[in-house]
């Protein structure tokens, strides 16, 4: 078996192993209910005013309660969801215009659990319900207007799945691994070497290989740390997707910085000055985006503005760092070139 055949075989086996592991580790759906409800709005009054879904829990344990509330077009009324044991003991409340896959980990005893979904078509109705059930502040009240009269076809889903808070990170790590192995399969079959030689010289190719390896190890360690933290139910200050985006940014930052530091970021006939300009422009634009997101959140204009702002800010910081690093390397190279002229 040639080296190429071995790499393809190992990659295919690796993909199968990762897929099997992802399936085995996936949280199991233990109970569910769903309903399609046409909601009529007339004069800021919803009909029906609410609808109910229920699940029966057989065994005591920790569950993720997943709530979906969707429509083909965005309804302009607020949907308030209240998850209760029986019909009175409130365990969890949430509200939004349309939401998908909103989840909450809860310790549940065996019994019947009801999800009451209120259709809130006016600010008055929202304030009344907000004060009664949501302890205030679940949803920004300025977004509650008077929806247009009409009929909205809502689709509600309630699922109780096995609670595995670390699974999101395992899933993304699995997808990254599958992506790498698929790339190996495709690149093994193509004339990659000759194309790479046209772009980077042998030292640059080696340096870039090292930088990708380091970025991958950093990503792996970062995700494993997050999985362990989730296993021990650590209270992380950011959402899972923000943490994943931060990990990917960190890995990308390490790859680019390491390549730039070792003069392997640009092909040897490319002009790095263009790269410096691009990095600086990116840093300025992303910094502005971070400010808009952050101040938008303060003014309640954007959902999750702080987290989006953080991602923008981090990307801006990496871009600025790379631009500064490129400037320093370029200055050093110019100095060396002047010194080396015979």
């Amino acid at each position: 078996m040639t080296k190429k055949e071995k790499m393809i075989t190992f990659s295919v086996l690796g993909i199968l192993v990762v897929i099997c592991l992802l399936i085995c580790l996936a949280p199991k759906k233990l109970a569910s209910d769903e309903k399609n409800v046409p909601v009529k709005i007339k004069g800021s009054v919803a009909d029906p005013a609410y609808t109910e879904l229920s699940v029966k829990i057989e065994k005591r344990g920790e569950y993720d309660i997943v709530i979906d509330c969707t429509d083909s077009e965005t309804p302009k009324f607020i949907t308030g969801a209240t998850f209760m044991r029986g019909k009175d003991k409130i365990l969890y409340t949430t509200a939004g215009i349309c939401f998908r896959d909103r989840r909450k980990a809860l310790e549940l005893e065996p019994g019947l659990y009801v999800l009451r979904i209120d259709h809130i078509a006016s600010a008055d109705a929202f304030i009344k319900l907000n004060n009664a059930q949501y302890s205030g502040g679940m949803q920004d009240m300025s977004t509650v207007g008077s929806p247009d009269d009409g009929e909205y076809f809502m689709s509600y889903k309630l699922k109780a799945v096995e609670s595995k808070p670390y699974y999101t990170f395992v899933l993304v790590l699995g997808i990254v691994l599958i992506g790498i192995m698929v790339s190996v399969i495709f690149l093994s079959g193509s004339d990659r070497k000759s194309r790479a030689e046209e772009k980077y010289d042998e030292r640059q190719t080696a340096v870039r290989g090292r930088s990708y390896r380091q970025a991958f190890y950093v990503l792996l360690i970062y995700f494993l740390v997050l999985v362990v933290l989730r296993l021990f139910n650590a209270d992380l200050p950011l959402s899972d997707w923000t943490l994943i985006a931060m990990g990917l940014l960190l890995a990308e930052g390490i790859q680019s910085s390491f390549s730039i530091y070792n003069d392997a970021y640009f092909k040897f006939r490319e002009n790095p000055l263009i790269g410096i300009q691009i990095f600086f422009i990116c840093a300025v634009i992303l910094g502005a985006c971070a400010c808009i997101s952050y101040f938008g959140q303060i003014n309640n204009n954007l959902p999750n503005g702080r987290e989006i702002g953080l991602i923008y800010l981090l990307t801006a910081a990496f871009s600025a760092f790379d631009a500064v690093l490129l400037c320093m390397k370029e200055a050093k190279n110019k100095r060396e070139e002047r010194y080396e002229k015979p």
């Binding site: 003069d263 040897f268 070139e337 080396e340």
Partner: peptide, 18 residues
């Protein structure tokens, strides 16, 4: 010959010769 000239002739970057 400068580093850049040698690099151009052997088809690598100046930094590699350096």
């Amino acid at each position: 010959m400068s580093q850049q000239e040698l690099a151009d002739k052997v088809n690598v970057s100046r930094q590699t010769i350096n």
